[in-house]
Design a protein around this nucleic acid. Structure first.
Lengths: 144, 144
DNA sequence: TATTAAACGCAACTGAATTGCGTTAAAATT
DNA sequence: AATTTTAACGCAATTCAGTTGCGTTTAATA
């Protein structure tokens, strides 16, 4: 099942200080092979068996804390994640891109080339983090 | 308990086609007197008694459908609402403002004067709705 | 005043996410 | 290589926001 080369797993897991259990290696691979974002439920359905949901949630939490994945918004208020860009660090995620929720297929996309305003304060409010969330019709659904 | 004048309630409820039950009048008043946003739990705690949570959820849904209130993002994935601006209509909400979540007091604020980009498409993605969500320290918490 | 339609309120339910805890397995140490 | 240590696993049980069903009440209306 491992399609991502082992070197990449070694390097990545070392970089992020993660233990190489078979489940977490598979989970990393799944993220690596997914073009868009994943929820716990979707992850669960992609593992044929023996992927306890608690393990999924704990792995996601651990991956997020280490800076390997990041949360993305979801229409139905689910926890949803995506691989981080290479610049991300455990305590400083650099996600200067917008997220797009398709109302047709319900998928969530990272629009990496839609850059965010870099405003640091507004009317006395100090801004640490700024997210842009769009809703509409994605490229694929548009052309159906 | 009714502090908002009755004329306003009459006018508003008529405008939005809402029934004037005592609970919904109180709920409207609560929104009207709140400077920032409200979750079902907060609403519940502000009514001394006899505000069944089901009634709260149904009233919120009804208020939202009529265009009186709108959903706002929440850090903990709760349903959270705020009064709409006067331009809003049942099927067309006009919330061209950003939302700010304070990491200190956990309150959510509508920044009415932070206007959003009016992009209608990006790389083939059709954008119907665009939200900006900021996190940081609000004016009050900053000066503590 | 009688009718009818929406809102209420209680109980029960759903489903995502979390907690506890004993067991297993990876990494570190000897 | 064998032992110790520590993180991850997996199962059951729990929490908590939000929803559904249904009989009752209350506001709008005819």
């Amino acid at each position: 099942m491992i399609m991502v080369n082992n070197k990449l797993i070694d390097v990545t897991f070392k970089k992020y200080g993660l233990r190489k259990t078979s489940f977490r290696k598979n989970l990393f691979e799944l993220f690596h092979n997914s073009s868009n974002t994943l929820s716990a439920k979707e992850i669960s359905s992609k593992f044929s068996s023996s992927a306890d949901k608690v393990s999924i949630y704990r792995a996601l939490e651990s991956f997020e804390k280490s800076g390997l994945i990041h949360k993305v918004p979801d229409k139905n208020n689910l926890l949803r994640y995506s691989l981080c860009k290479s610049e991300c660090r455990p305590n400083k995620h650099a996600h200067d891109h917008a997220h797009f929720l398709c109302s047709v297929c319900e998928e969530t996309f990272c629009l990496d080339d839609f850059t965010l305003p870099s405003t640091k304060s507004h009317n006395g409010f100090l801004i640490n983090d700024l997210k842009i969330i769009m809703e509409g019709t994605c490229v694929s659904c548009k052309s159906i």
